[in-house]
Design a protein around this nucleic acid. Structure first.
Lengths: 237, 237
DNA sequence: GGTAAATGTATACCAGGTGCAGAAATCCTC
DNA sequence: GAGGATTTCTGCACCTGGTATACATTTACC
């Protein structure tokens, strides 16, 4: 017929449409009735596809949900690789995370659009989905460690250790934000605190856990609180 | 009958015996044929128990393997709580991990008894078992964060961040050791390197990632070496 | 010794996931 | 266009992990 289309080819386009159709049906059903309440057979039926085909597109039920987050697996590594010259990896990562907060990137846990909120909630409430996210963490650690080795001349072990710390902190920050939003706080309300916590967390990464870290310029050694003077901004206290 | 026995009670003893019987049969079969090659029905049959009873003792197949590591979930938290007065949590944790290395505690990855080695290998090679271990990590993080809050007056967020970093580093060190032993190195050969890496890792935790740590020995942070004088001892290079 | 509670068993069942053989669609070539 | 090669989809049977039900057995307690 008309060879107007550029490259993709009908087969390829159809595959993408099927992929999207299955994913959409799955998310819709899961959000409506809960992840464990919906069987893959029901998802397949809703997507007008056989169960066998569904598993050809998604290796497991959990992937119907988390495949959208797969891109983030290499995000930190990409940020480190793409950082401006003479910039420390940690600096680039902090700026990137702060940008994510500003833009309410769901990966930071600071997006309160109803759909995002419910999805986040569902993931955090479903052990098997959390487990799948952990696997992403592992992948992110590996990719980040490699990026540190290749672009910052970080020795093997140091790169690995730095990577696991950084990924763990990222995840903890995001989970903290998500938890607060799930609890009812709005993204705008949470924003200032999220920024303060992020700065705090990266300061901890940079300076170590040895002594309490100065929250914002003023250094308080051992007075017991490393939270800022205005307690409502950060989350400690 | 004879009320000779002290406290346990027959029922209790029988339960413990059944528990052990199931676990032993499982480990034996898994080591012999591989985790995924053995069905829970086979384990139940080998333990002379019904499948239903097996699941009454172990909530999931993976628990047949990892239940022996359940105690370690709260280990770091206990170490922090039991530390001597005026000792920093990190110091206590470092000493404890070093002690584990000396004693070839399997949790450090530095035990090369054939049985331990094969079990470690099996766990690391089986995704679902690794996932189960990750859940232990999460539990360990929570417990450690609480211990830090309660015994070191660490503020909420700081405690959480410190906990995830510490647990991640522990795990990374252990996995590195286990990986090397699985690769053929002996525990005794690895010991010096493991100690050096541990010191390096804890120095990183204490002092932060700020200044790139020198590849070999020129940089001495505060006290003594965080990288050994002989570069071949550690793992960076 | 008898009885209630706990524990174990057999059976059937559900859901996730895979293997297989064949139907159907797409692609490529003429 | 027609035809065959190739890929994809489907229906089906099947396996395994895990659970619900209903019934038997053991243990503890009086």
């Amino acid at each position: 017929m008309s060879a107007v289309d550029g490259k993709p080819g009908l087969r390829e386009r159809k595959k993408q449409r099927t992929h999207a159709a299955i994913s959409d049906a799955a998310i819709r059903l899961f959000l409506e009735h809960g992840f464990s309440q919906v069987s893959v057979a029901q998802v397949a039926e809703a997507a007008e596809v056989s169960k066998r085909t569904l598993f050809a597109y998604f290796p497991a039920k959990e992937d119907l949900v988390v495949h959208r987050l797969a891109d983030h697996e290499t995000e930190t590594a990409r940020v480190v690789r793409a950082r401006p010259p003479r910039t420390a990896p940690l600096t680039a990562l902090r700026e990137h995370f702060l940008k994510g907060l500003r833009e309410r990137d769901p990966i930071t846990g600071l997006n309160d659009l109803p759909a995002v909120l419910r999805l986040t909630r569902m993931i955090l409430d479903t052990p098997s989905l959390v487990a799948r996210m952990e696997r992403f963490k592992t992948g992110a650690e590996r990719a980040l460690a490699q990026a540190l080795r290749e672009t910052a001349d970080t020795p093997e072990l140091t790169a690995r250790l730095a990577a696991v710390q950084i990924v763990a902190v990222h995840w903890a920050l995001a989970q903290d934000n998500a938890g607060r939003l799930a609890y009812g706080e709005s993204a705008d309300e949470r924003y200032a605190g999220a920024v303060a916590d992020t700065e705090h967390a990266f300061a901890l990464l940079e300076n170590g856990l040895r002594q309490p870290v100065p929250p914002s310029g003023t250094y308080r050694p051992v007075s017991g609180r490393d939270a800022p003077a205005a307690p409502s901004a950060g989350s400690d206290g």
